[in-house]
Design a protein around this nucleic acid. Sequence first.
DNA 1: CGAAATATTGAAGTTATTCAACTGGAGTGG
DNA 2: CCACTCCAGTTGAATAACTTCAATATTTCG
Lengths: 248, 248
Amino acid sequence: MSPDSLMPKNCNIPCIKARCSSCSLRELCLPVGLDEQEVRALDHLVNQRHKIRRGEHLHRAGLSFHSLHVVRSGFFKTYVLQEDGREQVTGFHMPGEVLGLDAISADTHTCNAVALEDSEVCEIPFAKLEGIGRTIPSLMHHFHKIMSREIVRDRGMLMLGGMKAGERLVAFLLNLSHRFAKRGYSPLDFNLRMTREEIGSYLGLKLETISRALSRLQEDGLINVDNKRIRLNDIDHLRRQYGSSSYE
Amino acid sequence: MSPDSLMPKNCNIPCIKARCSSCSLRELCLPVGLDEQEVRALDHLVNQRHKIRRGEHLHRAGLSFHSLHVVRSGFFKTYVLQEDGREQVTGFHMPGEVLGLDAISADTHTCNAVALEDSEVCEIPFAKLEGIGRTIPSLMHHFHKIMSREIVRDRGMLMLGGMKAGERLVAFLLNLSHRFAKRGYSPLDFNLRMTREEIGSYLGLKLETISRALSRLQEDGLINVDNKRIRLNDIDHLRRQYGSSSYE
DNA sequence: CGAAATATTGAAGTTATTCAACTGGAGTGG
DNA sequence: CCACTCCAGTTGAATAACTTCAATATTTCG
């Protein structure tokens, strides 16, 4: 049992009307920086909440694109299948983060998105977003910032290029830590939702290498590893020793 | 390194009014898919053309953001300097491609952009773009596609994660080839504008590894290398043998 | 032309991968 | 409840890939 499940406790309704104005993620999600009136406009924009159970897909590569989705609770991974059948993980996604931005380009999803734990998403029909954005410039501008942040984030991953396995892993852990912290969870003690293999795929390493790197960090006393649970014992040391790579 | 000011220095014709409606890049750049009237609106949007000479910077990380720039001619690289002083290349940019999308996120440039050869850019004040976009939905929508494409492109780089040096390099060459082709240049015979070191930085490899991989491909008869000039002798073989990675 | 930057290549060293054996936990069915 | 299997994870040993260091060649540019 994870000490910090990202799931809300009482969810037995498959779809409910989403309301940004009373959502606990207001300060993380689309509404950031919007005033009361603008957030109410968002209430009209956001269609509904969907439950996605662990292992279910939110969308698949090749499907036509209509709506963005914001993670309301839970945890997702996105990935693509390469010709040879290998799965390449392209990202992990927490509450408040937007899925589907890649699909705007060609009106087609370019990746698969699967829930790593029971999750909920809010659906945002993209045409509607563009429509409402026309009348609420600050909303449109905010959306541009979100897209831009996605670019910055992806580019941050690129910068791991020159790093060694241990450094990449630390950068990854620090990134998760930072994102958990922003969501009110401990930045020092959290559960990985993904397997070593998925981490490896994301970082361009093999699962054994991830395992070894984790063991090594534990030997050095920098972290504690108990299966999926990670404790960062000396986050400053981690930050100093390895690239701070604080990309959002 | 050459001393390079932020402003164009001594150009005879430093800045001229840009006109999308008569630009040869119409089919590659912002105007793609817009009708006559909409393109004329773009003429008002685009401020002017700037000449950036080889080695000069278009912008630097940390500077405040006002305008996007579209490469009108020439070739740019973007990069960030890491704490240890190492330069990490984040991209190469050809005519018709937009620079500065990363900066929207925080109104601050997150990377440096330097011309790898004498170049020209068209300046697009971002506030103006958002303003005009409000009245021309198709322009706004097109802009969203451009941002989305940038995300797809960056993510394509991520997918090189699992590949070996030779495969990454081939993916890189095929990507360049494809982009040259779209611009009317030969997809089989082109000049690299960047050094081996810059390619290496971009791909997460050392310059010697790039050099060796190029030599190896030449030995195998797949390409010809003459310093910066590359000829692809068997592009189908290259495409088949290595990941097609046709990201945009 | 000559200096500095860029590129190539070899040999040695390091790092990550591969293959393989083994552990432990979750879930299943007798 | 236990035996069993499956899956994720750990760890070791051998191998492959990449980097580093170093020497040399080539190109670029003032």
